[in-house]
């Protein structure tokens, strides 16, 4: 299973989001590959089940086949965990 963590540049926010998503997945005992990338590259990816991003960027991901999940607090492991569990469970 593949999850994308997406932000504008693909080097800052998305990397933090990836790290925290990996922590949340470990807590949930779920296995998935989490990849950080920028918006433009994310739109090219076909095989991701879920895209995690920040609320501001959801509209920019219109057209993707993956389920887009907005994370309000990228350091909020509870929020990330709950939303991932709902999407993947």
């Amino acid at each position: 299973m593949k999850i994308l963590a997406v932000c504008g540049a693909g080097v800052g926010t998305s990397v933090l989001l990836k790290m925290n998503a990996e922590k949340a997945l470990r807590t949930l005992d779920l296995e998935a590959e989490v990849v950080a990338m920028n918006l433009a590259n994310a739109l090219e990816v076909q095989d991701a089940q879920v895209i995690l991003t920040t609320p501001d960027l959801v509209a920019k991901l219109e057209g993707t086949r993956s389920e887009v999940i907005a994370i309000e607090g990228i350091f909020d492991l509870n929020e990330i965990g709950e939303k991932l569990e709902k999407a993947l469970g």
Binding site: C7, G8, G12, T13, N38, P55, D56, L57, F75
Partner: peptide, 23 residues
């Protein structure tokens, strides 16, 4: 330019911004 285009998403936590552009 990035912030103008994409909004304030780089404000990553209360009171904290992590500003950056693409490599």
């Amino acid at each position: 330019q990035m912030l103008e285009e994409l909004g304030p998403y780089q404000v990553i936590a209360p009171g904290i911004a992590l500003l950056h552009a693409r490599p």
